[in-house]
Design a binder for these strands. Structure first.
Lengths: 297, 297
DNA sequence: TGGTGCAATACCCAAAAGGTATCGGCCAGT
DNA sequence: ACTGGCCGATACCTTTTGGGTATTGCACCA
């Protein structure tokens, strides 16, 4: 049961000459002879017919030659693929992100990662912050792109981008035609907020702006996620406060407007488990870091 | 490229515990840890995630586990099959025989061999003595069953059986109805002999009997092999002198009769190259020896 | 019958693998 | 927070295995 012996055996089987095989294996002839003898002893089988000046393979030797070639090439493949996955050039990376990240820098970041590591299988899914946290802890995902950042101390994090908040308004809203919108004037508006759960969450960031601007919204409409909120805005239910980047994607019935007043902004942060040092994860975080530097500069 | 390490790796991958894996491998834990570390160093890849109390496989580790299982089972199969072929329980045995052997003891001998070694593939073919000799020397066959024995000193031989000669007559022959046939009375008969080439051969054995009985056949008909000779007999061309065993198979138009007079008999002998010590060959010769003892006794 | 080519053997040294003792880090239980 | 226990890693030594050089032994050839 030794691999080296198979390699030696194949060399002798191909050369049909111990001396030449030893040269090819870059070793002396006697140890080669001994290894072959040991292999034969292990098997209890003669592999070479040494009766004549010309060595020849026995039937058993031919059988072993066929198998040994397969075994060694399989082994080679095993090592190659393991290295690929182990260095992060292959394998799988499971990334989940908040819905509001699907329009801004994240797609570009992911494209950038793919250009460096085209053979890594990406598994993408959208979740809210609470689900992201759960999934990350349960190791159901490798990376979580959250807004705002997740609080857990067991996570490694990398800031992707900061952006200001803007208003998403129904296009028939009176506000849409004003030259400037002051947040403090929105007290009588219907605020479409998300997520409904868990609280505190992004919805509370918006409520905090209201409080700072001196009011509490007349009416709240809570949805589970960003996509639903925008849908409600588009049908005229009310306005929403969203990250600036989402305005890059136009949607019928919705217009985006900056506002005057307190603007805490919002940040997209990439998270991974501290104990997950998988090269795919580390590579993605490295690229995120470079990407963020370039973008913030 | 070390095989033991794969086995160790699989044990740890399955137990996810170095201590238990070491116990299962019947060794101490430290060398096991070191072998795994060496494997990881060889690959330049982490295979286990040791960050928590519970060890887990990395992605690369899972890939290697899958491959390692395959490699090891392939290796196992390689060893198993090589042993099978190497001990003569498997593989192939190429036997050629003279046509006149296809009716007597040879089929029984072959059946006997098959009952001991059912997994050996038998490749059977019929040849005359000269072809047998050639094929054996050229290693195109492993065993030659010849009549009479081949002269080459490079052959190992095993006597299968001796038998007396009898006459094969056309069934409408006048001779067929006689109570006794004396060979010396056959001088005016047409003798159907074989093989045409090479000479001297079996045909000369028969001519020698004629000479000893004091005549030279009035007419000779030479054919290439036993089968053709019997065919000519069956259509009334003449008589032939054949081994007794062929009479066990009846053929329309042919009757067999013993004769009085010189009867040198004939022997069936199994031959192999002296340098062919393949277990399949040795086993067949062993069985032939036992078989011959039993039959001659 | 000596010469040559090649695998096998003898003998020695270096490298690798295994064993025992021990360290160090991480939980768990008080 | 401290401590004991579990478990993998490290240190250090011993044994085993593999490789190298020199030489033998066996065919084949002239």
């Amino acid at each position: 049961m030794e691999f080296r012996r198979l390699k030696y055996f194949l060399a002798v089987a191909e050369e049909l000459h111990f001396g030449r095989a030893a040269t090819r294996l870059d070793m002396a002839q006697p140890p080669l002879s001994r290894q072959i003898a040991a292999l034969e002893a292990d098997l209890g089988v003669l592999l070479f017919d040494r009766s004549r000046s010309q060595i020849r393979l026995t039937q058993a030797g031919q059988v072993l030659q066929d198998h040994a070639r397969q075994v060694l090439s399989r082994l080679e493949a095993a090592y190659r693929e393991t290295r690929l996955v182990g260095t992060g050039s292959g394998g799988r990376l499971r990334i989940a992100f908040v819905g509001s990240a699907s329009h801004g820098l994240l797609p570009t970041l992911i494209k950038s990662y793919r250009s460096y590591y085209p053979d890594v299988e990406l598994v993408l899914s959208a979740m809210n912050n609470a689900e992201l946290s759960h999934a990350l802890i349960a190791r159901e995902i490798d990376l979580a792109v959250a807004r705002p950042e997740l609080k857990d101390e067991e996570f490694r994090r990398e800031l992707l981008c900061r952006e200001t908040l803007i208003l998403a308004l129904p296009d028939n809203s009176r506000l849409a035609s004003l030259p400037e919108i002051r947040f403090a004037d929105l007290a009588d508006q219907v605020f479409v907020l998300y997520p409904r759960r868990p609280r505190p969450g992004y919805a509370d960031v918006v409520l905090d702006i209201c409080a700072r601007e001196g009011f509490s919204p007349a009416k709240l409409e809570l949805t589970q996620d960003f996509q639903s909120a925008i849908s409600l805005v588009s049908v005229g239910v009310g306005l929403s406060v969203v990250p600036e980047s989402v305005s890059s994607t136009q949607r019928p019935g919705v217009v985006y407007r900056p506002y005057a007043g307190h603007n805490p902004g919002t940040a997209l942060t990439v998270h991974a488990r501290l104990d997950n040092r998988a090269p795919q994860v580390m590579n993605f975080l490295d690229i995120t870091r470079k990407f963020a530097r370039k973008t913030l500069a």
